[in-house]
């Protein structure tokens, strides 16, 4: 089946305005938008620019607006979207660098603001061969939010991001909750401080578009509300701050029966 593909083009060296290029594409069952773009780049126009890496919905680099909805190009089959016209544009609410490519430096800067790593004072003293204990329940309480691949789709869907350039955005705020909720972490206060800033968590009003669009089922809007609940409980003194989970001896010291021994190290 032949369809028409309209690709948003932007080259700051040529013009400050964007325009659309139109192509014809022979589509087959199961063909993804990324497959289509690669075919067009090889056969119709080598100047189309777009980002991709893994081609399997893992790296998060191929996010774009596909017929006005943010999707991962490698994760979206063309025939599920259209049988006539496919319109490809760069992600909304991000700065456009070239054709379908967006600049993610502001996005990652916001991600860094909320300190997306385990924070604990005894980090230097931990035995690096050991493990930190965590119950399955503790794991389940944040696991969903740890599947984020930083594709930026939630930011494109968010109506607050549509007008507020400084807003931390669903991705960073959801990760603030993900790390604060982790029983191995003790940096909640620092993240709350970062999230409560002027353009922070209070600008979310649960429009929920981020959660609907997220290609990994992360539900960032939910994480934001849970984080907000935690902020309220902490400020009212209703949630006791716990020390981060303690260390466990390395499993190898006390293996379960029936588990074969690991091979001897090859490098001494």
């Amino acid at each position: 089946m032949k369809i028409k593909v309209k690709v948003s083009r932007f080259d700051p060296d040529k013009s400050p305005e964007r325009y659309f290029s139109e192509y014809e594409l022979e589509v087959s069952e199961g063909m993804t938008v990324l497959d289509g773009l690669i075919w067009l780049k090889e056969n119709a126009d080598p100047t189309i620019s777009f980002r991709y890496s893994c081609r399997m919905g893992v790296c998060g680099s191929c996010a774009m607006m596909i017929n006005s909805y943010p999707h991962l190009a490698c994760h979206t089959q063309i025939l599920e979207i259209t049988k006539s016209v496919l319109v490809l544009e760069p992600l909304c609410n991000h700065a456009n660098v070239r054709d379908l490519i967006c600049d993610f430096s502001a996005f990652f800067e916001k991600h860094r603001t909320i300190k997306p790593h385990l924070l604990r004072e005894d980090a230097e003293k931990l035995d690096l061969t050991g493990e930190i204990s965590q119950t399955p329940q503790e794991l389940e309480s944040y696991l969903q939010f740890s599947y984020c691949i930083k594709c930026g789709i939630c930011v494109a869907a968010c109506p607050t991001c549509a007008t507020d350039k400084e807003y931390l955005g669903p991705q960073a705020l959801a990760q603030a909750y993900r790390y604060t909720q982790d029983s191995r972490d003790a940096g909640g206060d620092k993240r709350i401080e970062a999230a409560a800033e002027g353009h922070g968590i209070h600008h979310c009003h649960y429009a929920g578009a981020c959660s609907e669009a997220c290609p990994k089922g992360v539900d960032p809007a939910f994480a934001i509300q849970l984080f907000r609940k935690q902020m309220v409980l902490r400020s009212l003194g209703l949630k006791e701050t716990r020390p981060p989970a303690g260390e466990m001896p390395p499993m190898t010291l006390n293996p379960k029966p029936n588990i074969p021994k690991p091979p001897e190290p090859t490098i001494k």
Binding site: P12, Y69, C102, A207
Partner: peptide, 25 residues
């Protein structure tokens, strides 16, 4: 050299096929 691609106020109203909650917002 960057083109601002934010939707602006119009993006509050319509941005794609989202659920009720975005319109409630």
């Amino acid at each position: 050299r960057l083109r601002d691609n934010r939707l602006g106020i119009a993006g509050w109203g319509y941005a794609g096929r989202y659920g009720f909650e975005r319109y409630a917002y």
